[in-house]
Design a binder for these strands. Structure first.
Ligand SMILES: [Mn+2]
Ligand SMILES: [Mn+2]
Ligand SMILES: [Zn+2]
Ligand SMILES: [Zn+2]
Lengths: 140, 140
DNA sequence: CAAATATATGTAATTATTACATTTTTGTAA
DNA sequence: TTACAAAAATGTAATAATTACATATATTTG
């Protein structure tokens, strides 16, 4: 539970009311929400909020490196305020996107001997797909 | 350069003319094309081809496990007839999606100790982003 | 052949995302 | 504080990917 206001300042992002609200939502809800999820959650408390502002805000965050952009879902882009390296698992039944931590002292994103040396690397994403435990149980 | 017709039969997919054409395109062009790329390439030779057929066809292929679905690109879904495990690198300048082979006798997609045991895993994707060598050269 | 099934097509709808022009807010300096 | 410039937010409309669905055509099977 970090402070959204401080988090933005730490990333050189001017903390407007809307930006703080979006960042707070991301920091408090580690569910990899879509732009629409965020809008739907915040709109009731911020009647003048527009969806375009959500998109603009997320772009500012991503460009500043304050959030991760997750494209595991074909339907919509998802966003993640956790910057630490970790993987994602999307359940093909319920659609939830789970965090998958890396085993202690092994970071798979750190080893990329296969990438040509003259390529400049800026990010790594590892995406798993399958069926989550909950959905497997309710399957029979 | 495999035979598209045989490839479809091997995956229990009825080899209609359109399906063969789409699969041949995928087998011959390892560029991770979008649905639109494929349509644009085939339409001149197949005047009655519709874009919906491309989408239907790609869904049939994906459901049968005959192709991989690549979501590295926020703009559009991409498709890949290479089933062997390998990673992808998207250049943020030119947009090209490169194949990244895994180093000999190491398959990073084979190690998932971090995934809960009661999760059923069906696919793994590793996505890199950055700037490709060509674009770095033309940058100055 | 005829019926049943599998494929393909076309149109229209849906939805995520972006472009762009306008308005509002904020920071700053006279 | 007031004025002005820069930054931020908004709204509308456009774009573009994807899907829903109804129809038509082709293929398989009895
Ligand atoms: Mn995450
Ligand atoms: Mn590939
Ligand atoms: Zn699930
Ligand atoms: Zn490039």
């Amino acid at each position: 539970m970090q402070d959204a206001h401080e988090y933005l300042i730490a990333h050189n992002i001017h903390p407007s009311q809307q930006r703080v609200a979006v960042m707070r939502y991301l920091l408090d809800h580690h569910i990899h929400p879509t732009a629409d999820d965020i809008y739907t959650a915040l709109a009731p408390q911020m009647p003048t909020l527009s969806k375009t502002t959500i998109y603009n805000t997320l772009k500012v965050f991503a460009d500043a490196g304050a959030i991760q952009v997750i494209t595991i879902d074909e339907e919509a882009t998802r966003y993640d305020a956790t910057l630490l390296p970790h993987a994602h698992f999307k359940c093909q039944k319920c659609g939830l996107v789970y965090d998958i931590d890396f085993p202690a002292n092994i970071d798979p994103t750190a080893r990329q001997p296969e990438i040509p040396k003259d390529f400049e690397l800026t990010s790594v994403q590892i995406y798993y797909q399958g069926i989550c435990a909950k959905c497997k149980r309710n399957q029979n």
